[in-house]
Amino acid sequence: MSADASSKNGDRRHLWDDPKNVQILIWVFWACCAIVFALDFAFHRHPSFEGETLPIEEMVGFYSIYGFVACVLLVLVAKQMRKVLMRSEDYYGEVLGATAGEPDGGARDEGRAPDGESREGRDGGD
C-alpha cells in the first residue's frame, strides 16, 4: 500500500512495496474469511449459554456477523467521537517529545538525541 514512498530513500524494494503482493494478501485474506465462515456449516457449535437465554447465538454466522458489525460500528462511532473530542495536539500546553530532539526526517542512526547530555542513558546502543 505504500509502494511509492520507498524509492525516495533509494533502498531496496521490500515485500509490501509491490502492490501485487498486497493484492495477493488481500485475496488470501478474503478466502480465509470465507473458509472460517463456512466452518459454521461444517461443525456444530455448542452454545455458550444454556437453554434459551440467547438463541441468536446459535444462528449461522453469528460470530462472523457480530465481529464485522461490531468493528464497523466501533469505527463509525469513534469517528463521530472525534468531532466532539478532538483538539489540537498542544491543547494542554506541552506536547510529548516537543522538548526532545526530533530525528531529522531520516532514521536515527545511533538513536542518540542531539541534546545527549540531558537525555543521558536513554539508550546506549546495542
Partner: peptide, 15 residues
Amino acid sequence: VQQLQLLFFSALAFV
C-alpha cells in the same frame, strides 16, 4: 471456531 470467526470478520471490517 467462534474466536476465528470473530477475529477474521473484525479484520474484514478493518480491511
